[in-house]
Amino acid sequence: MILREALAENRVIIAEKWLDSILTSYHEDGARFFKKQKDRFANPLGYNARMGAERTVERLAAGEVSDLPPELVQFIKLRAVQTFKPSEAIGFMYELKQISAKVCGMDLMAANFSEWQAIEADIDKLALQAFDLFMADRELIYKIKLEEFKSGNAGTANGGCPSGAVLRKHNAEKIELKVIRDC
């Protein structure tokens, strides 16, 4: 458990470096404007990402990798609506490997190689969960687009679309018919 202890000890530094590396994935026109924004309402994702990063490292150190901390879940939600390819959006999870290795030190890592392998596997597990979440978020977006269309809020652009109430009535009738037929 030597490496995990080292992770726990250095979690603040690891999280910080990890965050720095996440930032490099952003567009150059973006700006480092939220530096001073500690308020979770004024800089919602700054809060989520910071807390998320730290808690993820904590969990990694404790070997509890069955799920991601809620702050990181929120952060992935944001990545899912920013203009990233999936690999870019989720790739940052894997950077945790290099950063952890660097902070723990190569010697310590080599000396406890089997433990390191377990840690790497845990990071993979976390990353795959992040990917699942990312995909779920993308699907949610499409679902919301569909819902918006169905609810009658999106009909405008094509003019004369049947209303939500009409649709509901219509659908209900169809279901009734189907039920009758099935009987």
């Binding site: 001073k36 500690k38 308020d39 979770r40 004024a42």
Partner: peptide
């Protein structure tokens, strides 16, 4: 006013 609610003082302090 934000100070009162948000704990960390820097945020709206600036």
């Amino acid at each position: 006013q934000a100070d009162i609610y948000d704990g960390p003082k820097l945020r709206y302090g600036s």
